[in-house]
Computed example of a mutant assay.
Amino acid sequence: MLDRRDDWWGAATGFRDLPDVERVVNIPKTGHDRAAQLIVSGDVDMTGDLVSAPLMKSVVESADHVTSFSGDEAPHGNLDWWPNWLYMNHQTGTWDDVRLRRALNHYVNAQQLVDIAYLGANPVSRTPFPAFGSMGPYIEDSIPLADEHGVGVFDPAKGDALMQEMGYAKNSDGMWDKDGETVTASFHGLALFEAVGPIIAQQLRAVASMWSL
Rank of each mutant, 00 (worst) to 15 (best):
M1Q: 09
L2S: 11
R4C: 08
R5H: 09
R5F: 08
D6Q: 07
D7C: 08
W8H: 12
G10A: 15
A11G: 04
A12V: 08
A12H: 05
A12D: 09
T13P: 08
T13F: 10
R16K: 15
R16H: 11
R16Y: 09
P19K: 13
P19Y: 12
E22P: 12
R23W: 11
V24N: 09
V24L: 14
V24H: 07
N26L: 15
P28E: 13
K29P: 00
H32E: 14
R34H: 11
A35M: 04
A35Q: 12
A36E: 04
L38R: 10
L38W: 06
S41I: 05
G42H: 06
D45R: 04
D49C: 10
L50T: 11
S52K: 05
A53D: 02
A53R: 01
K57S: 10
K57L: 04
V60A: 09
E61M: 14
E61Q: 15
S62D: 04
H65M: 10
T67P: 03
S70F: 02
G71W: 03
D72G: 06
E73P: 04
P75S: 02
H76K: 11
G77K: 09
L79D: 06
L79C: 05
L86N: 02
Y87M: 14
M88E: 05
Q91G: 06
T92L: 08
T94I: 14
D96S: 09
V98I: 12
L100D: 01
R101I: 00
R101C: 02
R102Y: 05
N105Y: 04
N105F: 02
N105A: 07
H106I: 01
H106D: 02
V108A: 05
V108K: 03
V114L: 03
V114E: 05
V114P: 06
Y118H: 08
V124Q: 00
P128I: 00
F129C: 08
P130F: 00
G133C: 01
G136C: 05
S142Y: 08
L145K: 02
A146V: 01
A146I: 02
D147K: 04
H149P: 09
V151I: 15
G152W: 03
V153N: 07
V153M: 08
G159K: 00
G159F: 00
L162H: 06
A169V: 07
A169C: 03
A169M: 11
K170C: 04
S172V: 09
D173E: 14
G174K: 01
W176H: 02
K178R: 13
S186C: 11
H188E: 11
G189T: 07
G189L: 01
G189D: 06
L192S: 12
L192E: 07
F193N: 13
A195G: 14
P198V: 13
I199H: 10
A201E: 06
A201R: 11
Q203T: 01
Q203W: 02
S212L: 10
